[in-house]
Amino acid sequence: MSDATIFVRFTFAGFHRWAGASGARAYLADRHRHLFHVEVRMQVAHDDREVEFHDLLERARTIFADDLGTNGNFGSHSCEMLGRELGDRLAKQYRRPVTVIVSEDGECGAQVEVAP
């Protein structure tokens, strides 16, 4: 592998909830909306678009929107869970490690690294 890493970014409006929320954060137990910011990174073997950016972006968006977030509803999935599920699918498809960052409204989130 080379030292080149590609990335794609997108946003997606959706809803989720944290059923176990309590105390000062009890409001998070209710379904609430976020603009999820997603970034996917992966190393490539050479500098001539081994993985086409637009193909990766389209695939990541499709998985996130259609498979993980049916009608924008992510249920009780946390940023970590969403990142891991997206990363698992992409790592299997592209047969390489993938890093996924998912944040709520670009403020708070998680980064996961997934190997195929």
Rank of each mutant, 00 (worst) to 15 (best):
A4K: 07
T5L: 06
T5H: 10
F7G: 13
F7Q: 15
V8I: 12
V8P: 10
V8Y: 03
F10S: 10
T11N: 06
A13L: 06
G14M: 04
F15M: 07
H16Q: 03
H16A: 01
R17M: 07
R17V: 00
W18K: 00
W18Y: 12
A19N: 10
G20A: 14
G20L: 06
G20P: 04
A21S: 05
S22D: 05
S22L: 06
A24H: 13
A24R: 12
A24S: 14
R25W: 13
R25N: 12
R25D: 15
R25A: 12
A26K: 10
A26E: 09
A26T: 14
Y27T: 12
Y27N: 11
Y27P: 06
L28A: 09
A29T: 09
R31P: 12
R31L: 15
R31S: 15
H32M: 07
H32F: 05
H32A: 13
H34C: 04
L35C: 15
L35H: 11
L35M: 07
H37M: 07
H37G: 04
E39F: 03
E39W: 02
E39V: 10
V40H: 01
R41E: 15
R41L: 15
V44H: 02
V44Y: 03
A45I: 06
H46W: 15
H46Y: 15
D48I: 10
D48T: 13
D48Q: 13
D48N: 11
R49P: 06
R49T: 08
E50F: 10
V51W: 03
F53Q: 15
F53W: 13
H54G: 13
H54Y: 10
D55E: 09
D55S: 12
L56Y: 02
L56H: 05
L56T: 04
R59V: 08
A60R: 00
R61A: 03
R61G: 05
R61L: 09
F64Y: 08
F64E: 00
F64C: 03
A65D: 11
L68C: 05
T70C: 07
G72T: 09
G72I: 07
F74T: 00
G75C: 11
G75S: 10
G75W: 10
G75A: 15
G75M: 05
S76A: 14
S78I: 03
C79T: 03
M81K: 14
L82M: 15
L82G: 01
G83H: 01
R84I: 04
R84A: 01
E85N: 09
L86E: 00
G87Q: 03
G87A: 09
D88W: 02
K92R: 15
Y94R: 01
R96G: 01
R96L: 01
R96W: 04
P97Y: 05
V100E: 08
E104A: 08
G106N: 10
G106M: 03
E107L: 14
E107D: 12
C108T: 13
G109K: 00
G109N: 02
E113W: 06
E113L: 11
A115D: 13
